[in-house]
Amino acid sequence: MQGFEPEEPGNPDVVGWGVGPVLERFERVRRIAVLRGGGLGDLLFALPAVAALQAAYPDASVTVLGTPVHQELAASIAGPAYDVRILPFAEGIRPGPEDPAALEAFFTQMNRETLDLAVQLHGGGRFSNPFLLRLGARHSVGSRTPDAARLERNLPYAYYQHEPLRALEVAGLAGAPPAGLEARLRPLDRYAGGLDPFLAGESAVVVIHPGATDPRRRWPARSFGEVAAACAADGARVLVVGTRDEEDLAATVVETAASARVTSLAGELELGALAALLAAASVLVGNDSGPRHLAQALGTPTVGLYWAGNVINAGPLGRSRHRVHLSWLTHCPECGADITQIGWTAPRCPHESPLVAGISVGAVYQDVRMFTAKSPLPRGR
């Protein structure tokens, strides 16, 4: 089984099927570490695999090796029971100033904990597989590009693959079939009370998130503002959310809408309060970003703005609760570079012009109306 890469459906080591082959479970697994750095959405993509591992190894503890926002999510929202240990800064793992002493201390501590299984859900493995191997686990599984270090069981890495399904396919290498295809979370009651001034008496609440880590994924804030104005004119309460870094974007949405029923809460909400707001909302309108993925995990309908390549990796699977508006651009509007050749195989061009600017305001608004008007569509999970 050393270096296994699933190729033949008839392989005798394959005992079942999930998203991909489900191999035999490892024996005597009591401690599992899952490597998944990045932002809020990155952890949400990994949670179905975490749930699968927990179901396959019910006596094992699961620790996610992640980032501060992952730790905040685990502490402030109800969901799968797992711990989060914050990763040290390391190239290709967690961007920031590397401290060799901190790295050594991290690996020393992880080796002391005698991990039974290490699971790599952090990309193609060029940096993450060597990092994972230094944890000293008895068993290792993950994805890998041809130039990455081999783990005990390997999934060939292709950039264009739905991230939650990729994570589930990796979990299958460890003998864990899917327990669900998407993350499922619940808000904590303690955060709901502070939202009463914004939600009391409202029949429809539209939450707008105009931000995204990558500027190319951002629909123009003024386009969001036009949607906000139309929703407010229909009688909906519109709340604009975001981080402190996104306050200017939120202010532009509010300014464009020019309505007393449109308010910015950017920079004001803890993650738990954001989750409570999203769970109470009629719909979230946003780019391919963490709050959109969080709304989906909470069971809230969404209207998402996506570049076509991103929807392959990060789009919702269903369309009853989630509507997707696509930009089909294939070349950079500034330099003409082929923007479909991205990931580990090719460098991206340096330009940051939005790729989704051409999406129709009217089309987005019509989908929002589908969720704010009365509808027989159930909100149950």
Rank of each mutant, 00 (worst) to 15 (best):
V206A: 06
D42E: 06
A228L: 05
P197G: 08
R31H: 13
Q54G: 13
W344M: 01
D248F: 03
A346G: 01
R244Y: 05
A102F: 11
E98G: 05
G242T: 06
S282C: 07
C332L: 04
T263V: 11
T372D: 13
G20T: 01
A357E: 12
V241S: 02
V311A: 12
N313E: 15
A308P: 10
I32N: 01
A230Q: 15
F371R: 15
G10M: 05
A176M: 03
M1V: 01
P48Q: 10
T213I: 11
M110R: 14
G180S: 15
R348K: 13
L135E: 07
G175P: 02
P21M: 02
R379S: 09
Y82S: 09
A314F: 15
V262L: 01
T372N: 14
E268C: 09
L168D: 10
A273S: 13
N287Q: 06
E270L: 00
A75S: 13
P146C: 04
R166F: 09
L47G: 08
T300G: 05
I342P: 12
F107D: 12
C332E: 11
A78E: 12
G343Y: 02
R218T: 07
W328P: 15
E72Q: 11
R218M: 10
L40K: 01
G41A: 00
L73Q: 12
P9Y: 00
A236T: 08
V285S: 14
L199P: 00
A236N: 09
P95H: 08
F45R: 06
